[in-house]
Every structure is written in C-alpha cells, then in structure tokens.
Write a protein that binds this DNA or RNA. Structure first.
Lengths: 150, 150
DNA sequence: GATGTGGGTTCCCTAAGGGAACTTCGACTG
DNA sequence: CAGTCGAAGTTCCCTTAGGGAACCCACATC
C-alpha cells in the first residue's frame, strides 16, 4: 500500500500519527491499559491478525510507548505502558469522550470512568493550562513556534 | 487491503476511529481548521493523492464532520467544520500536546496556541468535568456503561 | 475558438492487511 | 524420556487500499 509516513512534516499531529496512527494501534493501547497485556489476550479480544499484532507491538515498543516485561523463563512477555504511553491514554480518553457524545446513540456510552480524586463518574474537560478556563478549537489562535519549518 | 472496520465494537474509541482513523483524515481536519478549505489547497499542502483526498473528504462529509459550501456557480466547494467536527479538533489539540512533549525534540513545538480568554500561549490540560481536578489515565477506573455489550 | 482552472476520475502498480497453517522452545504428563 | 501442550511469533498466499500520473468536465476568460 506504500503508505507515506509523515516523518518529514513539522507537525506534532503528523508525528503522533507516525507513532499510533496505524490501524489497530489505539485499540492495542486501550487493551493494554485495561489489563490485557499478553499477546493472545489482545489478539483474542480484538480479532486482529497475529501478523499485524506482532508488527504493531514491535512498533509501539520501538517508539517507547510500551515495554516488554518477561514473565517466564521462556521468552514470554507482558506489555506495559511506559510513561510516554500512559500519556497517550489521555488522548484515548478524549477520543472516548467524543465518541460517547456523537456516536454512542440510544444505548449510551459503553464504558464509564470514575475519577479517583472525587469518586464520581465523570468525563474529561479541556482547560487552558495557564488560566484554567475552557480551551477548545475555537478558543485559540495558532502561531508559528520555534520548531516550525521556515 | 481488506481493512476490517470496527463498527461492531461497543467501544467509543473504535467508533471514533471509524470516523477519523483512516490515514490522512486527521491531517485533513487540521488543514480545514487552519483555513485550507479547498480541494487543491489541501492536496498541495499535504501532498496526498487526489484520489485518496476525494475519498477522505466524502467520508468526512458523510460522517457529518465536514460540510460542503458552494462558492461558485460551478460545482466548487469549500469544506468547513461542523460542530461535530470542531469538537474533533479538540482531540487534535491533545494530540498536538503529546507530540510537542514527546516528539518535538530540540527544535521545540512547530506551532503554538494562544488562548483567547487569557491571551497567553498555552496548552490544554485534562480535568475532571465534575471536580475540576486533573484527570489522567491513571486517575480513573473504567466501569461498564449502559451501552456495553453484555 | 483556444486556453485556463478547480475538482474530481480512471488506470496501473505496489505494498499492507487478513487468515490460516506452521514453527519454536520450554514445560508438563505419564 | 517420548509425547503433548501453549504462548508467541513467522510464513505464505490472496485481496485490497494507497500513490502517482494522466485524463475529464463544466464553466470562464481572452
């Protein structure tokens, strides 16, 4: 399929897509996050082909998003999120929020999140890290930053 | 390539991926967001093949994420974000934040965001919509929701 | 009438995903 | 100790999606 990769682009979205943009990758991360950490568990849960799962896991480990932890004298591994990977799960939570709002339909959201700090079932809100007010797509201007291609 | 779509899954991540999970789709949305609204502008900016761009735009319009606005007597269209689409851009901002932090390297982020409300260059923060405290992947438990497959 | 322009279509080629069978290596079984 | 099991890959073949370039079409302008 000769997929172009987005490496050359001075764009953090493109770069992030080079890490988790391939099909299945976000779902693999979700599985690891909820505790399905072994090859066959993930494969059975997603119905993904073993070949593709191997490729995805290798890529995610290469990118520092997952780590392999041996759990046997044989080469058997559990996959765990690194810190880098755990912060990607934040992205998945936002994705979940959007899907819950726009796609869940009558049945309602398939999964709920309970926030440890307050104990309530809740969802994520995007706020400005500076002033704490809501921060959405229409509340910002984009400016060229230091890493922009000039 | 016979890509499985994730329709059957009771998972808001999978559902969201069915809307914007295909290669290029997030980058197309970004372009529309920053004001590249016409076919040839997007095509030139991304270097995407015209065929694939046609497919992606049609899909995004079908999904209610983009709208076509005629701007000529001929069938010429500008693409604009719907409300549903604008909320997807929130997701892109979070993606950008992650890429800025983990992938930008020496050069620093290629794009900065200035928040209208406070006028500061800033970034997004994830907070609990209930108590307002930070809410990250490790701060929550997942529970089955009403739309879960039982 | 000739040329230009934006937005697609068509065609061919290559490479990526699906699926199922096969491999490997240590562990357990009798 | 031969036989079997199980997890995690690997290989093979087939189908299909993406890349790229050429082509098309309706209008507009010279």
């Amino acid at each position: 399929m000769q997929r172009t990769n987005f490496d050359g682009m001075a764009c953090s979205i493109a770069r992030t897509l080079d890490v988790i943009g391939e099909p299945w990758s976000p779902l693999v991360l979700r599985d690891v996050w909820v505790g399905l950490t072994r090859f066959d568990q993930i494969q059975a849960d997603l119905g993904i082909s073993r070949k593709v799962l191997t490729e995805r896991l290798n890529h995610l480990v290469d990118q520092g998003v997952l780590e392999r932890h041996p759990y046997d004298r044989r080469p058997r591994y559990e996959y765990h999120l690194t810190e880098k990977g755990a912060e990607l799960v934040d992205l998945l939570m936002v994705m979940t929020g959007w899907g819950d709002k726009w796609l869940a339909g009558e049945a309602g959201p398939p999964v709920l999140y309970r926030h440890h700090a307050c104990g309530q079932v809740s969802s994520v809100d995007l706020r400005c890290s500076h002033c704490g007010e809501p921060m959405h797509a229409n509340d910002v201007d984009a400016l060229p930053g230091p890493g922009s291609a000039v």
